[in-house]
């Protein structure tokens, strides 16, 4: 048990259908969660991981129902704690592919502590955060990503609670892989999931997800045909950050500030644009870029903000176990009992 097994070759190629469980999916009709479920089920067959090696671990929330719909191993746990449960599993079972499914309340409010510590430790786990900027399951209270002024069940006069930027938070927590994608952009979602799956270490993906019941249209400008091109910039490593209906706009770094320039204007030069570097060991650039939110005449970046390599806690832990066995030999219980100062009491004759 508990040894990393050689990857098994599935007897026949798996398909999306193989990953669908027999449980009825219970999200509201039109919920963005459906699209994410479907893309995950489409990506998995491409990864070549045997079904029994896949484990989906979730917290509590609409999004966290996800594991019930996957025909893999699944564990629907408690609110906010999925990162910790996933850490224990992954640390002890390096042969498994472990995925955390969480929501903006689950990961960033009640589970904020476990979320940042998983990122810092960099265990080889994927985290998919379904960000609908609302508490869906508990019927529409604001969440730690809801915008100021938001009127919800618990904030009738508008929210006075300043929100997190999950990408900046993850970068600040020393994450090695940070990405953002959208439930409505299936191709981009698919590609981002694939890249997250390929990362060794904690791969964090924020997925903007529409809750059509309690926060409908929260991401409309980024997903609707008429507006999205003008507001969304796709990050690509080694390329300038461009956006606009004809990619006519670009991002320039001036001091620590980003500014948008219009390349169709005579004075704008392509060479002035910021060339994005997702592999930079230092997270400063990614942090600066993460501050763009689609407002103030700047686009919303999507794609991979950061992808760097750093030792994983799980690998290091297992390496220590291996080393200890090598240095001290595999433990012997009787030797262990009989260690330190011992003495014998003789039978009295």
């Amino acid at each position: 048990m508990n040894q990393a097994a050689a990857p098994e070759i599935a007897s026949r190629p798996l398909t999306k259908k193989d990953f669908e469980s027999d449980q009825d999916v219970r999200w509201c009709p039109g919920c963005g969660d459906y699209a994410i479920l479907s893309q995950v089920q489409k990506v998995l067959p491409e990864l070549g991981i045997p079904r029994e090696k896949l484990v989906f671990i979730s917290g509590i929330g609409c999004s966290s129902r996800f594991p019930y719909y996957m025909n893999t191993y699944g564990f629907h746990t408690i609110h906010g704690r999925a990162p910790a449960i996933a850490s224990g599993l992954r640390a002890s079972r390096p042969d498994l592919s472990v995925w955390v499914i969480t929501g903006d309340g689950d990961a960033l409010s009640i589970g904020g502590n476990h979320f940042i510590h998983l990122l810092r430790r960099n265990l080889d786990v994927r985290i998919l955060l379904f960000n609908n900027r609302i508490y869906g399951l508990t019927k529409g209270q604001y969440s730690p990503t809801s915008e100021l002024g938001k009127v919800t069940a618990s904030t009738p006069m508008g929210s006075i609670d300043y929100p997190f930027n999950p990408i900046s938070l993850a970068l600040g927590a020393e994450a090695t892989f940070v990405a953002r994608t959208l439930d409505r952009d299936l191709a981009h979602l698919h590609e981002t999931l694939r890249r997250a799956a390929a990362h060794r270490g904690t791969a964090f993906v924020e997925i903007y997800q529409n809750c059509n019941i309690f926060n409908d249209g929260a991401f409309e400008v980024f997903t609707e045909k008429e507006t999205k091109l003008a507001h969304v910039a796709r990050l690509e490593h080694g390329k300038p950050i461009l956006y606009g209906p004809k990619n006519e706009k670009g991002i320039r770094l001036k001091g620590f500030q980003l500014e948008s320039i219009d390349l169709s204007k005579a004075e704008a030069r392509m060479e002035d644009l910021l060339v994005y570097d997702a592999h930079c060991p230092d997270a400063t650039l990614a942090m600066i870029v993460s501050r763009m939110t689609g407002e103030n005449n700047l686009p919303l970046p999507i794609g991979v903000f950061r992808s760097v390599s750093r030792p994983c806690y799980d690998d290091s832990l297992n390496e220590q176990v291996r080393k200890a066995k090598e240095m001290m030999g595999p433990g012997d219980l009787d030797e262990l009992f009989n260690s330190g100062d011992t003495w014998v009491v003789q039978p009295s004759s």
Binding site: I57, F75, T77, A84, G88, S92
Partner: peptide, 14 residues
């Protein structure tokens, strides 16, 4: 909380 949850994750894994 994390420490008991990690233990539960490990128990789940055997």
């Amino acid at each position: 909380i994390a420490s008991v949850c990690m233990a539960i994750g490990a128990a789940y894994g055997g």
